[in-house]
Computed example of a mutant assay.
Amino acid sequence: MPAALEEITPSWLTGALAPQLASESVTVTNVESDPIALGVGFAGGLGRLSVEYDRDSESAPKTLIAKLPSAHAPTRNLLTTLGVYEREVRFYQSVASEIPMRTPKCFVASFDSESKGFILLLEDLGAMRSPDQTVGCAVDDAKLAVETLAKLHGSIWNSPLLGEWNWAPNWDAGAEVFASSFPGWWARLQQNFPSAISDEFRKTAEMVTPHVASIKSRLSRRPVTLCHGDYRLANMFFDDTDKASPLVVFDWQAVRVGRAPYDLAYFLGGSMTVEDRRAHERQLKATYYASLIQAGVTNYSEHEFEEDYGYALLDLVSFTALVGGNLSFDNEQAQNLMIGLISRVADTLSYVDAERLIANLP
């Protein structure tokens, strides 16, 4: 299995694509790779493969997106320990074709249980519209994203399938590790992004610190569904030519089983500008909830939904510290993306009664 883009050879790629192109009997004669998404994807290495074959073929992809472990050793070691690389491979192997959310076509999904290496070869969607998360999600795109999210959540609400997908951890898996590691992560976050941490955000983090594990336990209680875990604008393409399925969602490394509003809170809190979120958050939450009920969810009140949304925002404190305190931000685009996430999440949290929510934890 290739461990880096430059290790993807014509011979290896021919064998890897053979099951998908069995009827074609084509041979890869040349493959060139170029790194992409620098400063956008923190957790893995991404590259676009340009592929040539020994004969013409309509079904053989001329370009592919390759995803491999991060070349940044601390990031790679952390995410391997957390199991996120294996998780995304299992998602494409078992789930992608079963959900009402469009994902990139997957040509290869392979994980080595001994080396913990992995590789994904995905459909190249680079021609689609891909808005800049640092600029912020447009309101119409946000409406589409929350409606599509509700359909996903509703389709697997308390489903028996969640028990079969044992590679997808419950929300509180590793909660004690998060709790014990959070103070160090938070310290590094402040060191890495000192000007981005407001006094109010710092106070909220101090309140959350003793309750990191309890918040995760709260979000793992039924009713639960399959959560994307990293539902943000940078992980979306918009196909404006396809009215039936215009949204394509990728990067499923953080998929977990938990309370549905986490994905919504993360998306609204991290992907919209502060001004747009303040102006439209209430309506977008109402759109999501109505779509969830329309998808068949019952016995889930608006009050319970609002409470879950608040706890999800509190959980974002530890997630923000995990990302900002551990992953690689070695260029300006990556740094700006993280600074934007910090400031937007902090502002969203400022509208939450954190003291009341924490006081009501078991």
Score class of each variant (00 low, 15 high):
297 V>T: 01
306 E>W: 04
316 L>K: 05
301 S>D: 08
320 T>L: 03
304 E>K: 13
303 H>I: 06
301 S>V: 14
314 L>K: 01
310 G>Y: 08
300 Y>T: 04
308 D>N: 11
301 S>N: 10
305 F>G: 00
311 Y>N: 02
319 F>T: 08
308 D>Q: 13
321 A>W: 02
301 S>P: 13
300 Y>P: 02
320 T>R: 15
302 E>V: 08
312 A>G: 08
300 Y>G: 02
315 D>R: 05
304 E>M: 04
305 F>A: 00
324 G>K: 07
308 D>F: 12
299 N>F: 11
325 G>C: 12
326 N>M: 13
309 Y>H: 05
320 T>I: 07
301 S>Q: 04
308 D>H: 09
297 V>D: 00
324 G>M: 15
296 G>S: 02
298 T>D: 04
310 G>S: 14
298 T>M: 07
296 G>W: 14
314 L>W: 01
302 E>D: 06
320 T>C: 05
317 V>F: 07
313 L>N: 06
297 V>Y: 00
318 S>N: 05
319 F>V: 15
322 L>D: 11
323 V>T: 15
308 D>R: 04
315 D>I: 01
318 S>D: 02
313 L>D: 00
323 V>N: 02
310 G>V: 14
311 Y>G: 01
295 A>Q: 09
298 T>C: 10
295 A>H: 08
299 N>A: 04
296 G>Q: 10
324 G>W: 06
321 A>C: 07
322 L>C: 08
302 E>L: 11
312 A>H: 03
320 T>M: 10
317 V>M: 04
315 D>H: 07
310 G>F: 06
313 L>I: 08
304 E>W: 07
323 V>D: 02
324 G>N: 12
311 Y>V: 03
303 H>K: 12
298 T>L: 15
299 N>I: 07
307 E>V: 11
297 V>G: 00
297 V>A: 02
299 N>H: 07
314 L>E: 01
303 H>P: 00
324 G>C: 10
295 A>S: 12
310 G>D: 06
308 D>I: 08
323 V>P: 00
318 S>F: 08
298 T>K: 11
317 V>S: 05
307 E>C: 05
304 E>Q: 12
318 S>H: 13
310 G>M: 13
307 E>P: 01
310 G>E: 05
316 L>G: 13
316 L>C: 07
313 L>S: 06
313 L>G: 14
295 A>I: 06
322 L>R: 08
319 F>E: 10
298 T>S: 08
303 H>W: 02
306 E>Y: 07
319 F>C: 15
303 H>G: 06
300 Y>M: 09
312 A>Q: 13
325 G>L: 03
300 Y>L: 14
325 G>D: 14
321 A>Y: 02
301 S>C: 03
